[in-house]
């Protein structure tokens, strides 16, 4: 199994709901707490496992605002695991989820240096590295109804822009979406083989722009309209 997420950049509206749901679930989850430093101060800081950045792509009149949520990509070639000196970072062989053992981490930051996606953040209070667990404490929980055994971010997304599934299964929803919508990996040239895949926005017709005419042409237009009646 290769579990991961597909994020649809066409429908994401950048509401930060996934990040908030993630923080809420995981702060009391297996790697919790996700501490904050000065949460009500001038410069609030804290560990979040999911960040949403907003970009403007292309130039007007073809420009588009794209919201890009980013969490751990659960890479096939996870350098964060390779560089870890304590063995706190590990990748599960059964489902490919990359996790940090909070009892072993010494907070050297090297894994965050090795991660190109900014997926790892040091907890300012605990001094250990925190990262997306793909809600490993939700997706296998048999006490939950079957359709709720998904990561918190996927459950909460109001536009259904996040899809969770097994990338090894060619008939899973995520595999189909990646095939049909030409899903892309981020920074493929670095060779980390990230599992999470992004669906690019669909092309939309260009909005016609209002062309201001000269005063003479405007008057001529009005006269022509009157005469034709």
């Amino acid at each position: 199994m290769r579990l991961g997420l597909v994020v649809d950049l066409d429908s994401c509206v950048g509401c930060h709901g996934c990040a908030t749901a993630c923080k809420q679930w995981n702060t009391s989850g297996t790697i919790g707490p996700l501490s904050d430093k000065a949460p009500y101060g001038r410069n609030p800081n804290g560990a979040w496992l999911n960040r949403i950045r907003t970009y403007e792509v292309d130039d007007s009149p073809n420009s588009k605002t794209v919201h890009m949520p980013m969490s751990c990509m659960h890479c096939d070639d996870a350098a964060c695991v390779t560089v870890c000196p304590t063995g706190a970072s590990y990748k599960r062989s059964e489902d490919g989820i990359v996790l940090v053992d909070q009892d072993k981490c010494m907070g050297c930051n090297l894994c965050s240096w090795a991660c190109p996606y900014g997926a790892r953040e040091l907890d300012p209070q605990e001094g250990t590295m925190k990262k997306c667990t793909l809600c490993v404490d939700r997706i296998y929980d048999e006490k939950l109804p079957e359709d709720e055994r998904k990561p918190a971010c996927v459950m909460t997304c109001p536009t259904k822009s996040r899809v969770f599934g097994d990338f090894d299964d060619p008939n899973s929803e995520v595999s189909k979406l990646v095939r049909e919508r030409a899903g892309k990996q981020l920074l493929p040239e670095l060779g980390y083989n990230p599992v999470n895949t992004y669906l690019p926005p669909r092309n939309k017709p260009v909005v016609e722009q209002y062309q201001p005419a000269s005063l003479k042409d405007t008057v001529k237009g009005w006269v022509n309209k009157v005469i034709s009646r």
Partner: peptide
Amino acid sequence: STIKTATGFTQASVRLLDQGHTSNGFLNNE
């Protein structure tokens, strides 16, 4: 790498509009 390969939009210009948080986090500081 460039911002284009990072975001996957390799055929157009890409500019950051909003980093998503008002004060610097761990990634900004590090």
